[in-house]
């Protein structure tokens, strides 16, 4: 399953590439630490626009496997953020990681096809499990 991604990174073995979008640098750092230990590659961005820049900075756009995003960000928020990512990268599974424990919003997002709605502070195991589920979904999306 990891062949395509591994090939992209010049043979370097990885479980997949995760984009972490959050306006707080320390939050991005914490997510990165957790995921890198589990064998994922991580790129960070503070908002959706920066995410696109990060993806396109090389000669070829990076192949994203999973996106983890906060939903309270500058300029766009909530549903808009989800729509934005789903339009940009329709096949890439989304995980919402937010400080808002909002059941109604969570249900709404899950109905829109996001993989998980995680509330900060999220336990390490829960985050890792959620990313693993997203990776499986990504494989299905690519079939």
């Amino acid at each position: 399953m990891a062949e395509t991604t591994a090939a992209m990174f010049g043979g370097h073995k990885t479980n997949g590439l995760v984009l972490v979008v959050d306006d707080e640098p320390d939050v991005r750092k914490v997510v990165r630490m957790t995921l890198e230990k589990t064998g994922y590659d991580v790129i960070e961005a503070e908002d959706g626009e920066k995410a696109i820049e990060a993806i396109h900075q090389g000669e070829n756009p990076l192949m994203l496997d999973v996106i983890i995003t906060d939903i309270r960000m500058p300029k766009i928020n909530g549903v808009e953020a989800i729509n934005y990512f789903q339009q940009q990268w329709p096949r890439v599974p989304l995980i919402v990681l937010t400080g808002f424990p909002d059941m109604e919003m969570a249900t709404g997002f899950l109905n829109k096809g996001i993989v998980d709605y995680l509330v900060k502070p999220v336990e390490k195991e829960k985050l890792i499990k959620s990313v693993a589920t997203a990776m499986e979904k990504r494989d299905l999306n690519r079939l």
């Binding site: 320390d26 400080g99 900060k120 390490k124």
Partner: peptide
């Protein structure tokens, strides 16, 4: 909910960093 958001962010950093 504004407060929850503002507290949960640093709380997440504290918990994860302490574990680290």
């Amino acid at each position: 909910s504004g407060i929850a958001h503002d507290i949960n962010n640093p709380l997440y950093v504290i918990l994860a960093m302490a574990e680290e």
